[in-house]
Amino acid sequence: MKVLVVEDDDETSDFVARALVREGFEATVARDRKSAEHELSLGRFDVIVLDVMLPDGSGLEFCRKLRALPSSIPLLFLSARGTVGARVEGLSAGGDDYLPKPFAVSELVARIRALGRRGPLTREKFAVLGDTVIDLQARRAERAGNEIPITGREWAVLELLLARAGTVVAFDELLEAIWGTASVQARASLEVIMTRLRRKLDDGSLSPLIRNVRGVGYRLDLP
């Protein structure tokens, strides 16, 4: 798998590249936007790791420009800004994942691997479920004009179910993607979260949006 690391801090890109190489990936380092564009013109990459702050302009803008092109390479943002707002910004600029600095190298490698395997997600900006409107970018849900409180973990579950709407998402897949482990406690948490999510989204509706497919997983059906 070929990874392009666009990062202006040499030492950071150095250890990232080393870690990637040790994992059996092929890593190319670009210090700025210009050289990143040059590298992209030379060859195909499977994943791009992009620092939000680049010496010759914002990484967010670079990402938007890349997303305007027909090619869709999965992209992971690195950012030293590290607020939730920055994460939302990164994802709405077209990033597929976001990792705040300082990060654990093992986590970066795991996420790059996941991105390379699954390819870019088609991220819908909005979802309309009955009278519920979900703004996935701003992470805001409303029913009949009233805001619905959805917590971080509920968003994660909802995003995954929406991305795979109409198909059953297995329990273990949800657990691994969101809790990182399929432990008994995580399974209990998942059940609590599903109950709440269904109550929040389905409240008063005749046909439930999220169905529990017994023994397999959950399925969200778009109306």
Partner: peptide, 21 residues
């Protein structure tokens, strides 16, 4: 705050990554 967070997190990122490696 923005500059400080960048200036502090960048070396921390290196340190953490290098120690991990």
């Amino acid at each position: 705050v923005s500059d400080a967070s960048h200036e502090l997190r960048t070396p921390l990122t290196r340190l953490r990554g290098q120690l991990e490696l």
